[in-house]
Every structure is written in C-alpha cells, then in structure tokens.
Amino acid sequence: MNIVVCVKQVPDTAVERTLRPGDATLDRESVDGLINELDEYAIEEALRISEAHGGEVTILTMGPQKAADSIRKALSMGCDKAVHLLDDGLAGSDALQTSYALAQVITRTGFDLVILGSESTDARTGLLAAMLAERLGVPQLSLASKVEIDAPAIRIHRQADYGYDKVEAALPAVVSVVEKINEPRYPSFKGIMAAKKKPVQTLSLADAGIDPAQVGLAAAATEVVSWAQRPPRQAGTIVKDEGDGGAKAAEYLAAQKFI
C-alpha cells in the first residue's frame, strides 16, 4: 500500500495571527510553524494502515523552507519519506491552485491512498480533500472518523450532523480525517534519530511539472479586496453570584427578549 499524507505547516494557533499589510497573505514568518493538528491524525491513520497492511507512507508538503521542520517531525512519527514542494512561485496560492499543485505531485509519485486532514487551522477552507478527489478522479472518502481497509475495498464512517454515514469505495481513494479517528503518537527518541536519515525530496515547480502560470498570488482565483481587525467586543455586565446569579441571568435574558 502506497500512502501519501498531505501535511501542511500552519502558524501556531495559540498566538495572534495576522495578515501582511502588502499583499494580504498570511504572515507565516513571525509565528512558529507547527504541523496542522488534524494532519497529525492523518499521519497516525496512515501509519496504522501501513502497519496493518504493509506499504510505505510518504509525506507531501507544499510550503516555504521553514516547513522542512514539520516534515522532519512527521518523519520522526514513523513515516518513510517525504516530498517537499518548495518554490517561491507557489506563494499566495489559493485552494484551487494548491489542489492543482498537490495533484501534479501525487500523480507523479503514484498512490493507493491519499490522506489529508479535513481542515487546516489557518485557511480553514476544508476544500482540499474534495478538490484532490475531483482532480485525481478517485472516490472521495472525506470526514472519516473510522477507516477500514479490505483491499480493494475501503470503508469509512463519514461524520455528519445527525451521526455518520457508512461509505464504501474501491482503492485508490482520497481520505480526509476528523479528530475523533485516533490518538496521534508522539515521536520516540529512536524515531527522531531515524528521521534525520530519511529521504526528503525537494521539488521545484519545474521538477513537478507544474505550470507556473497556474499557481501563486498573481494567478489566484480569489482575491482579498481589504481586511481589518475586528473591533473588540463591548465590555459586558459581570455579576457575582450571591445566591441570585441565576435570577439575574434570567432577568437579562428577558430584557434581551430571549425569553
């Protein structure tokens, strides 16, 4: 089983994130980069599948030089190798372009399974898995809270508002995972040492056969017109419960016509 895991480096969510004044792209320089949290679940699922069914797990990251740190971390969790798509021409790409670039690489490396997080914490578009399925022309098994492989069949539980759907397809396929699916492992000391020697292939646009006219800020299908910090909320009324806290809350709700 040849598994590709798409891993994105994102700014730490615990610190204030902002846009750059010039081109309204995310300021990735001033904030620490981490593996997008849901992508750790994607990595864990890939490792479990390869442990149970054999095969190789390849990390695929598109991102600046700095993203190499996240790639190392992913390798230290136990993945076998990585591809880093790195080219200044990619900066400012939107979801449509990112999916095109990732699909170009994945088509070249070949795959039985592509696994993604269902959403990134910075862009939060949740578009990538469906776009990749569409581009690669394979089944979309997204929002998975459970994955079961019985090659060539693959079955998942797809999270829904009302519970979940059981979904079945034939490999190759694209899977995206939700947080409930597993508990990602921590890299072991041995894993960290081993990761230093694992192969990381760095690809430019030309190496990956990506048309430079179809990626990057200038060619993006969407455009930021303006942006602003949201004004802080007005300070509210805070009362201390002196045995009447519930009553006061009810009074407030009544005054606001909620009851």
Binding site: I238, D241, A249
Partner: peptide
Amino acid sequence: FELADFGVVGDLFKVVPQLVEQI
C-alpha cells in the same frame, strides 16, 4: 468573560438550576 455581554461569576451547579427554574 472578555467576550461576555452578560456574565455570572459563580458555581454552575447553583446558577444553572436557578436559571432554568426562573426561565
């Protein structure tokens, strides 16, 4: 509390039952 339009500082096991009753 920084986001609150209205906040009660108190034990939820006392405040919530009273709130439910009052509603």
